[in-house]
């Protein structure tokens, strides 16, 4: 976890008060109190959100849980066709996650091993630079956001992203085959998307807003603490900074200058 014990207890307390839906809090807290208490939650106050994927602690089971958690809370349809797939968080082998980094003597420990990939919430994101409408943009807290009300579906951002992090709704997600999506939409509190817009990982902005950690990190923590570390890269005392200080880490395609904020400890 990226927050010290004392703060964590506070969040735990608050989340309990808020309940999963976050509705109960309004009845219990006066407006001023609620705002004040939310401000105290460090998870709503990041300056530069980032993620560490610690492959030393990661395994296939955890990755599977992470992907399932994300797909569930974000109503991600399964079309059963890699061409039109929607992917917010997904796995890819080492040599395809870091193309050009592999060599012929690399050990089996790495070659063919799956890595967990997602949008890097780049510091200087080309996707935002090329978007003609501002439907994708960099928030002050570092999250590269999507506005599905505004996107015109030109897919310039997909050409611009060098990480394949963006997915286009080639068809209506609600028309995804029923057999593959028996209980779609899985989270009725989160919208589905319309056909013709682009979508991607948003670091669970909707959860961060209420002091909850991203769904994938929560799922990973249930199995093994520290497999995924989420936190504020701007805060030198944050857990994510501690992990990055203690271990050697790499990023995807750093030479392109996009400044990816997802780090991999090998």
């Amino acid at each position: 976890m990226d927050i010290d014990r004392r703060k964590f207890l506070k969040i735990a307390g608050l989340s309990a008060v808020m309940g999963i839906g976050g509705k109960a809090a309004f009845e219990l807290l006066a407006p001023k109190e609620l705002e004040a208490s939310l401000r105290e939650v460090p998870l709503t106050q990041g300056k530069k959100w980032g993620m560490v994927v610690n492959m030393a602690k990661m395994d296939d089971e955890i990755m599977k849980r992470c992907m399932e958690a994300c797909n569930r809370v974000h109503n991600i349809p399964n079309f059963g066709d890699p061409r039109v797939e929607i992917k917010w968080i997904w796995e890819e082998t080492y040599e395809h996650s870091f193309p050009g980094q592999e060599h012929e003597y690399i050990g089996e420990k790495y070659l063919g091993r799956n890595f967990l990939l997602m949008c890097n919430h780049c510091t200087d994101p080309p996707c935002c630079r090329v978007c003609p409408t501002g439907a994708t943009w960099k928030r002050e807290d570092g999250i590269v956001m999507m506005d599905w009300h505004r996107c015109i579906g030109c897919r310039f951002c997909m050409a611009g992203c060098p990480y394949g992090s963006r997915s286009f709704n080639w068809g209506d997600p609600r028309k995804a085959p029923k057999e593959l999506n028996p209980d779609f939409p899985t989270n009725r509190d989160y919208p589905t998307r319309s056909k013709g817009v682009v979508e991607k990982c948003t670091f669970c902005d909707e959860r961060i807003a209420r002091g909850q950690i991203p769904a994938c990190v929560e799922a990973a923590n249930e199995i093994r603490e520290g497999a995924l570390v989420f936190g504020d890269l701007d805060d030198p005392d944050s857990d994510i900074r501690k992990v990055l200080r203690a271990h050697y880490s790499i990023r995807r395609k750093p030479e392109l200058g996009t400044g990816p904020n997802v780090y991999y400890i090998i």
């Binding site: 309004f26 609620l34 509190d189 919208p191 902005d205």
Partner: peptide, 30 residues
């Protein structure tokens, strides 16, 4: 929708002082 998506502000204070979470699903349709 503008405030939530673009501004990241998710709480709405009504004229009577009550605070609501700005969400179609979780507030209106509740």
């Amino acid at each position: 929708r503008q405030e939530v998506v673009r501004g990241g502000e998710r709480y709405y204070t009504a004229s009577n002082g009550k605070v609501y979470y700005k969400s179609v699903e979780e507030t209106c349709l509740d």
